[in-house]
């Protein structure tokens, strides 16, 4: 048991399970998954579907936070990516043309890479603190998105584009499949190459990493580019889901949810050790919380406070110092041997 509770993913997983079970009390059908017209439906599917953009962004944010940095500009990147894709599609004679949609998607993701490269250069080359460097794009990016959409909300009507955020493939929501693919690809990239090791070294001890010959600048740029790429995909999903590009509100404050997801997932803001699976759990916790608020009918005027209270409790449960204090009396002064022998 002790071994199990010590596992770094134990607390995020436990919190998620408790939250899901709590929903069962209010909504007895919460765990039901149905097949309608060959598509999967259900509250759990909804959580995955609506949580997809957040999971993606949080994955990218994990890489940046692992280096000891932070990326505030992901929300702006979401807006720019969606704005570019929608405005390209809107100008086309045939919005249903797959080729045109692919062009739009490609250009939007390409621009996202450029934005990430810009962040990376600012942080790695000029040594501006990440929070400031990305704050520039966070603010300016909304303006860029407005320029692209001419200050309007561009609505589109394109079935191939709607697939990204709202469509289904093999019965599963397409967005969820995208998340699975990105997660798998990231996990392979991180753990099958030495990227994860080197990122953790740079985030864990920058000076030691320099003296060991790690070219930290390239890694930093790479992390920010990856993060922006994820935000770009999320931007496509969000705009596809609402069939419109809203430069003002798309992805607003999502950077804060993403940072929260990373932290709840057990990655320290100081950098170093990170956990992709933890981040996914963290993002799911946040999305479950939002879904819970809608389904249980928490009055709208207290949703924000309710959310804050739950997040505070989650963070406290995550804190070893708090747990030690809260459970101090029930803990034996010497570890019981029988407990230690139980395998995890």
């Amino acid at each position: 048991m002790r071994e199990l509770t010590r596992h770094r993913l134990f607390w995020p997983a436990a919190i998620l399970v408790v939250m899901l079970l709590a929903n069962l009390i209010f909504t007895p059908t919460f765990f039901r998954i149905e097949l309608k017209n060959g598509h999967l439906y259900g509250s759990l599917i909804d959580i995955l579907l609506y949580g997809a953009p957040l999971i993606l962004i949080a994955l990218g944010m994990t890489m940046v936070i692992a280096t000891g940095g932070i990326d505030l500009s992901v929300g702006a990147t979401v807006a720019i990516s969606g704005a570019l894709a929608c405005s390209i599609i809107a100008e086309q004679a045939d919005q249903e043309a797959v080729g045109g949609v692919l062009t739009a998607v490609g250009l939007a993701l390409g621009l996202s890479l450029v934005l990430g490269f810009w962040n990376g250069l600012l942080v790695a080359r000029t040594g501006i603190q990440p929070i400031i460097a990305t704050l520039i794009l966070m603010v300016a990016g909304r303006g860029v998105a407005q320029l692209i959409t001419d200050g309007q909300i561009i609505t589109i009507n394109s079935d191939p584009y709607e697939l990204i955020g709202g469509g289904y493939l093999f019965g599963f929501p397409f967005a969820v499949l995208v998340v699975v693919v990105v997660f798998a690809a990231t996990a392979v990239l991180i753990r099958r190459t030495a990227l994860g090791l080197l990122l953790e070294a740079v985030g864990g001890n920058a000076e030691a990493s320099r003296l060991v010959g790690i070219r930290a600048r390239r890694l930093l740029v790479l992390a920010y580019v990856f993060c922006a790429f994820c935000a770009g995909i999320a931007g496509l999903m969000i705009s596809s889901n609402i069939r419109a590009a809203d430069g003002n509100n798309a992805g607003l404050w999502i950077e804060l949810d993403a940072i929260l997801a990373v932290v709840i997932g057990g990655t320290s803001l100081m950098g170093g050790r990170f956990s992709l699976a933890g981040t996914v759990l963290g993002a799911l916790i946040i999305q479950t919380l939002s879904t819970t608020i809608y389904t249980t009918g928490v009055p709208p005027q207290i949703t924000l406070v309710f959310k804050a209270v739950v997040v505070t409790v989650v963070c406290l449960i995550q804190s070893p110092a708090f747990r030690a204090k809260a459970f101090h009396r029930s803990r034996p002064s010497t570890p019981a041997p029988s407990e230690a022998e139980v395998p995890a």
């Binding site: 090791l197 070294a201 864990g204 000076e207 030691a208 003296l211 050790r273």
Partner: peptide, 13 residues
């Protein structure tokens, strides 16, 4: 501590 080891990482790493 400050210039050699990355304390977060394992011995092998």
């Amino acid at each position: 501590k400050s210039e050699g080891l990355v304390e977060d990482l394992t011995v092998g790493e």
